[in-house]
Simulated scan of single mutants.
Amino acid sequence: MSAEISIFHLFLEASILVQSVMLILLSFSIACWAMIFQRRKILRTAASELKAFEDKFWSGADLSKLYSEISAKPEVHGIESLFVSGFKEFARLRKSHIDNPQIIVDGTHRAMRVALSREVDNLETHLPFMATVGSISPYIGLFGTVWGIMNSFIALGSVKQATLAMVAPGIAEALIATAMGLFAAIPAVMAYNRFSHKVEKLENSYGNFMDEFSSILQRQSAAEQSSK
Rank of each mutant, 00 (worst) to 15 (best):
F213H: 02
D62M: 07
S71T: 12
A168I: 02
F37R: 05
A14S: 14
K65N: 12
G60H: 13
S117A: 15
T178M: 02
N122K: 14
R94N: 12
Y67V: 00
F8H: 10
S71F: 04
Y139M: 12
E203V: 06
G141A: 13
I7A: 11
I36E: 09
I216D: 06
P74T: 02
L127G: 00
F153I: 09
I70N: 08
Q38T: 01
A46H: 01
I103W: 03
S96N: 14
A3M: 14
F213R: 04
P138N: 00
G148A: 15
L23P: 00
I79W: 06
S48N: 08
F213D: 03
Q220C: 09
Q38D: 12
W33Q: 13
P187R: 03
K41I: 02
L217A: 06
S226D: 13
S226Y: 10
S227N: 13
S27V: 11
P74W: 00
H126F: 14
G60Q: 10
E212C: 07
M130A: 12
I16F: 12
L116T: 10
P74Q: 04
H126N: 12
I24H: 00
I103T: 09
A191V: 03
I7E: 09
Q220G: 14
K73L: 14
I98V: 15
Q19N: 11
I24C: 03
M180N: 08
A3V: 14
R92P: 01
F83T: 09
S215C: 07
S135G: 12
N204Y: 04
S27A: 14
I154P: 04
L123D: 02
V167S: 07
E119S: 05
A61G: 00
L202G: 02
F37I: 10
Y206P: 01
S20E: 02
A3Q: 14
K65L: 14
K198C: 05
E124C: 06
F90M: 11
E75S: 15
L23R: 00
L164C: 08
R44E: 08
V159K: 12
D55E: 13
F209A: 08
R39G: 10
S48P: 00
M130Q: 06
V18C: 05
V159H: 10
S117Y: 07
V199Y: 05
I140C: 08
T132P: 05
K73V: 00
S27E: 03
E89F: 04
F195S: 06
F11C: 05
E203I: 03
V114P: 00
N208W: 08
R92Q: 13
Q218H: 13
P128S: 02
F87V: 03
R113M: 09
P128A: 01
A131F: 04
T45E: 15
